[in-house]
Nucleic acid binder design. Structure first.
Length: 594
DNA sequence: ATTAGGG
DNA sequence: CCCTAAT
């Protein structure tokens, strides 16, 4: 592999927008599994949880641990208002997150994250030492809220693959079911691949989303018999339509493919507002952001609490600073790749491996049972600096001496043990430390870059992986506890039952799915997959089936209840129509066979 | 390997 | 998205 010059980018923190809205509570399900998705929301969930706990506890004891409240990274605006009506978790709501209403500085320090890209493919390994047993954690975050429990996972794997060129690939495969034979070739002004799809006889062009799972996630369409094809096409398949569905429409609609590039990638951020700045993510911008963010305030106000009366403090977190971020990426990487990489890094660090720490006047407040009042957080407490910090979730059990945010200095084993926040990624190494200086955990075995760079698609180098694992092994003490919980880690195996990262369907994908289902029906997901998502490796037929299910549901609920990237009503209408049609067909068939 | 549903 | 039973 050609050695490439790499560019190093250092983001001194990533500002995370305020909580957009109350996040959904996870479906309480069995095992404690991590939920990589909605990482950002999760982070806030944690905060919400903390807020709730802060409001509930009634005992006290503080363990001081001088923390650098002056750390440049430690900032976030938080509003604390008194509220007699709101309760606990419920008090942390989106509506309350408004800029300009703070008056006291709140700091939130976060660990630094380091990502490394080696020849476009790097594996970052890290294991989390979260508690798996709900009863075992004295962690303030692991108390009553199940959501918190879900955060406690030992590991997390995120795959990041980058192509060196990030070029768009032109899909050319024709699905067997697709009738691409006679087609009126319509000139397509825009020249986009999707244009001519609709001119096919049945009205359903063989549109296909070509999504290279491993690169930019470009979702593209490929149509047959289009003269606009960019790349040379093989002779178009001339197959007959097996299932002529009544869904024939002409689509002159078509978005610009360019929209595809980041719609998915940056989606989480696109939907959120930055209170301080919304400009590009350039270094300068970040610096600016940094300074601004640092001046966030927290206010504690309200009337005095009478004896016996329970007062409520309202917390409003304007923004939360994310750990320092370092990106090491080849010059040849595309912007999209960079964006995605950063996104991945942020997402990863905001995942389950973080927990919230509470700082008061620079000291860490560890006792969850202490009340706000006892702790000194009250309305008339304008000089107290309440701080929230995101820090790596490490094994609390085995680290009786930890808690000191700045300690990771070298790469000794012990450090590694404590460094429980690093993530195991297929490509890209994320090392999260609380140290500002970049403390790197050598890539697995003595900087075995091969291991790192070959984890992409092949499962080779398992040996190296083993080494990796060995280095970041969960402390024995923790293993015992974990034994009670279904723990699927298989040594030497890089893909041990990790929940896949969430990847919301883009509108274009939805469109492709709808179109395929219109034609094939709802019981042939394998075909649907082949037809419309053959190149989208990350979309399995089960995914498509599930997506259809949710689409039907989405189409039935009111627009206000819908979440995520809005799906055009037109598409939803088609979903309902197709669903109704095929449901009917299904019934007919069943009756027939009886 | 797929399909169909519940979680 | 995951997990499973049933094909």
């Amino acid at each position: 592999m050609v050695m490439q010059k790499r560019l190093d980018y250092g983001f001194n923190g990533y500002q995370v927008p305020s909580v957009p809205r109350a996040s959904r509570s996870p479906r309480g399900r069995g095992t404690v599994r991590k939920k990589p998705e909605s990482n950002q929301i999760q982070a806030f969930d944690i905060l919400a949880s903390v807020a709730g706990n802060l409001l509930q506890k009634n005992q006290s004891s503080i363990l001081d641990n001088a923390s650098s409240a002056k750390d440049p990274r430690t900032f976030s605006g938080i509003n604390i208002k008194e509220n007699k009506q709101e309760n606990q978790l419920g008090s942390l709501k989106e509506e309350q997150f408004e800029p300009g209403t703070c008056s006291e500085v709140v700091s939130g320090s976060v660990p630094s994250l380091q990502e490394k890209h080696e020849n476009q493919r790097v594996t970052s390994d890290s294991s989390l030492h979260g508690n798996h047993l709900e009863g075992q954690g004295q962690n303030e975050l692991e108390r009553d809220d199940e959501r918190v429990k879900l955060q406690n996972t030992n590991e997390k794997i995120i795959r990041i693959k980058n192509r060196s060129d990030g070029s768009i690939e032109q899909g050319q495969k024709a699905s067997k079911d697709c009738s691409a034979e006679n087609h009126a070739e319509k000139p397509s002004p825009e020249g986009h691949c999707r244009r001519n799809l609709d001119s096919l006889p049945n009205g359903f062009g063989s549109r296909k989303l070509v999504n290279r799972d491993d690169d930019e996630n470009f979702v593209q369409c490929t149509q047959l018999n289009s003269k606009n094809k960019i790349s040379s096409d093989p002779p178009p398949d001339t197959l007959k339509v097996k299932d002529a569905s009544p869904f024939v429409k002409d689509e002159n609609n078509s978005g610009d493919n360019s929209v595809l590039e980041n719609s998915e990638r940056m989606y989480p951020f696109k939907k959120r507002k930055f209170y301080y700045q919304t400009s590009s993510s350039t270094s300068d911008s970040w610096s600016h952001c940094q300074g601004t963010v640092d001046s966030s305030y927290t206010r504690v106000n309200g009337t005095n609490h009478g004896a016996g009366a329970t007062m409520h403090v309202k917390l409003s977190i304007k923004s939360f600073k994310v750990p320092e971020l370092f990106i090491d990426i080849p010059e040849t990487a595309t912007i999209g790749s960079l964006k995605r990489t950063v996104m991945e890094a942020v997402t990863a660090i905001l995942g389950d491996e973080l927990h919230v720490g509470i700082l008061l006047q620079g000291k860490k407040v560890r006792d969850d049972s202490k009340t706000l009042i006892q702790t000194g957080i009250s309305q008339d407490d304008k000089h107290h600096r309440l701080g929230f910090m995101l820090e790596p979730r490490h094994n609390r059990i085995s680290s009786s001496y930890n808690e000191e945010p700045c300690f990771l200095t070298t790469n000794s084993r012990q450090k590694l043990s404590r460094q429980s926040t690093s993530l195991m990624l297929q490509q890209g190494t994320y090392n999260v430390s609380r140290e500002r200086s970049t403390v790197k955990i050598e890539n697995c075995a003595e900087g075995d870059h091969n291991a790192v760079s070959s984890l992409g698609d092949t499962s080779a180098n398992n040996n190296n992986m083993s080494k990796c694992r060995a280095l970041v092994t969960v402390p024995a003490i923790n293993m015992d506890a974990l034994a009670v919980v279904p723990y699927r880690r298989k040594s030497g195996n890089s893909d041990f039952g990790q929940r896949r990262i969430r990847r919301p369907f883009s509108v274009l994908e939805v469109e492709a799915l709808v179109q395929a289902v219109e034609k094939l029906g709802t019981g042939r997901w394998r075909d649907v997959k082949q037809r419309a998502f053959d190149n989208a490796k990350h979309r399995t037929y089960v995914d498509l089936k599930d997506k259809w299910k949710t689409l039907v549901h989405t189409a039935r609920i009111s627009p206000q209840q819908r979440r995520g990237e809005p799906v055009p009503q037109e598409l939803l209408d088609r979903v309902l129509a197709a669903h109704a049609y095929w449901s009917q067909q299904q019934c007919k068939h069943q009756l027939k066979s009886m």
